[in-house]
């Protein structure tokens, strides 16, 4: 059985907000290690990999590995019934036909209990090859969200060019073109806003902005984001949390 108690229930609410538009149904794979999820969007262009490590919960118990098949829209609706400061406890027995959720307020004088029906989901896990990326950009997650949203005004696609001087996001469309360049600035006072680049080789890649904008729904989970890129391989967009991560992979657009 699974029992996982999360002091900051708001974290789970934010995680669901970050994935529910990209994927509809997914298995939460529960093991000793924690709660993981890997799922592709319906068009097989993007993939979400989530890990909530066991040490983010107190207590965390999972005697046997369990796959909890969840409709993410339903789960996010139930989680909206939890207060932002509530402690959330997840429980499931080995039959895994329902997920029990308990929300306790901080004064511990209001306890709400919900049960969500689970489903059998036939999901195949994809093997993600270990990749040494040619360029890794670490930047403010809010800045990344703003750039994606701004450039969506111009085009469906963004071209990302990384050199040792900086990273340039450019878009061209019917109404014109636009570009935002962030210079590498490791010395700025505010560490959270710094743009840092690790570069083996310059890269220039095209991606769908619709997906990138979708990924930025994870912005409330982390102040920083990293973009890992190599020529003609999927982009990795990672938001690190205190006890885990949310990673998005996006297949590139490749010219003829």
């Amino acid at each position: 059985m699974l029992e996982a108690r999360l002091q900051t229930g708001a974290l789970l609410k934010k995680v669901l907000e970050a994935i529910k538009e990209l994927i509809t149904d997914a298995n939460f794979d529960c093991s000793d290690n924690g709660i993981a999820l890997q799922a592709m969007d319906n068009s097989h262009v993007a993939l979400v990999a989530l890990l909530l490590r066991h040490d983010g919960f107190e207590p965390y118990r999972c005697d046997r590995s369990l796959a909890l098949g969840v409709n993410l829209v339903s789960l996010s609706k139930v989680l909206r019934c939890a207060g932002n400061d509530d402690i959330i406890t997840l429980k499931a027995d080995d039959t895994a036909d329902v997920l029990s959720l308990t929300f306790e307020n901080t004064d511990n004088d209001r306890i709400s209990e919900y049960e969500l029906k689970l489903m059998d989901i036939d999901s195949e896990h994809l093997g993600i090859p270990d990749t040494t990326y040619e360029a890794v950009v670490q930047m403010s997650s809010a800045e990344f969200a703003r750039i994606c949203k701004d450039l969506q005004v111009l085009s469906d696609s963004v071209q990302i060019d990384v050199t040792k001087e900086g990273v340039k996001f450019g878009a061209k469309g019917e109404l014109g073109s636009g570009a935002v360049t962030l210079k590498q600035n490791g010395n700025v006072d505010k560490e959270e806003e710094a743009t840092l680049i690790e570069l083996q080789q310059n890269v220039s890649l095209n991606f769908s902005l619709k997906y990138l904008v979708n990924f930025t729904k994870a912005t409330p989970l982390a102040s920083r984001v990293s973009l890992s890129m190599s020529s003609e391989v999927p982009l990795l967009v990672e938001y690190k949390m205190e006890a885990g991560y949310i990673r998005y992979y996006l297949a590139p657009k490749i010219g003829e």
Binding site: H125, L126, L250
Partner: peptide, 14 residues
């Protein structure tokens, strides 16, 4: 214009 690739051409089912 560049064409959207499928993720399945990079990541294979386990």
């Amino acid at each position: 214009a560049p064409v959207q690739k499928s993720l399945l051409s990079f990541f294979k089912p386990k």
